[in-house]
Design a protein around this nucleic acid. Sequence first.
DNA 1: TATTGTGAAAGGGTTCACAGCG
DNA 2: CGCTGTGAACCCTTTCACAATA
Lengths: 214, 214
Amino acid sequence: MNPRRISDSALRRLSHYLRFLEVFEEEGRETISSWELAERGGTTSAQVRKDLSHFGSFGKRGLGYPVPELRARLAGILGVGRRWDVAIVGAGKLGAALYAYDGFRRRGFHVAAVFDDDPRKIGRRWGQLEVEDVGVLGASVRAKGVEIGIVVTPADAAQEVADALVAAGINAILNFAPRKLVLPESVTLRDVNLAIELEALCFALTHEGWIVGR
Amino acid sequence: MNPRRISDSALRRLSHYLRFLEVFEEEGRETISSWELAERGGTTSAQVRKDLSHFGSFGKRGLGYPVPELRARLAGILGVGRRWDVAIVGAGKLGAALYAYDGFRRRGFHVAAVFDDDPRKIGRRWGQLEVEDVGVLGASVRAKGVEIGIVVTPADAAQEVADALVAAGINAILNFAPRKLVLPESVTLRDVNLAIELEALCFALTHEGWIVGR
DNA sequence: TATTGTGAAAGGGTTCACAGCG
DNA sequence: CGCTGTGAACCCTTTCACAATA
């Protein structure tokens, strides 16, 4: 039951289930079946049950899953029941967009610091925050207890910045820079790469008839 | 050799190889081995050879792959050797960040239109462009020959906007809105979902010892 | 000799199908 | 009876290992 291993795709699906459950809970639904959850997420009921079974059994046979309870359990499993302090490194347009992104706040992510190396940007106010010199990143991240770093620098600064984040004790990095980062095994890294997503679209447009598997 | 099917992960790796090959070509390297390509991309040489074998055999036994040729072939395979006209729907901060993103232009992606439904934004100049009313999306997209749509609207507008893009003849959509879009089979859809990436990081931080597979 | 291209084996994720239980 | 939880089957991706060849 606890293989201490989960696939990336299963993890993404859990996030989706959580989203649907939040909606169902608001609607006052008491229970939901794996089939209904599957339909919304574009999977199968067996998949839903398998995904949940990684973490225990939450349903009642013949009835389905209790909505509020499953929602709470899933939130706990994903670790989103609390506030997470995040640092954004790179005070450019993308950094600003992420900072302003409301879904962020609503999900408990709190931007606690923004850094840049451009003297024209350092010191500017972003809401309650002030853009800090990337030189003080280590001290500031530690002082503020930041646990998640978001890298939105140009490609050539990304590795250096990531190293600084790791040196400051950060173990989870979301990287938007189009550069493969080399980090210790212990640090969790996820990449969001615009160019790769667009190229996948180009491939599909160029190769009608080909199937891009999942 | 041509199974007319490729996995998402293989496709992503091809994009990475292309990036490395561009660097190698600039450095004047003539040949490269699958092993060297693998090292950069964090894979194995067998994987590189399998990935390439989907599309033919480009190497010379005992020597490796000719860098400029393989680069050109890969660009052709991914479909990035030409200009692609893109429409951004949603003139918010994220839309603006994508519009300004330089890697975009450099890879042949050309933002040909920007749409919004907010009267205060419609008509504003974005560089050479003017933000258009989402009501004229169909006509404008057709007139400009746009082939790729990027959805950066709030969640509740995303489906409607995507439907309009499809109605305008678009077959490839990159969706940043946190909403599962329902589209015809024939349309290629890729999602970029901030919340899911962050939740995966939270999961990892919350479950030390667990392995998130690929 | 060095390295590709590729069948075959291994690994791991998804689907099936049914026993178990409310 | 209805729906969950799960072992087994299936299928796809990755890795292995080696024949082919520049």
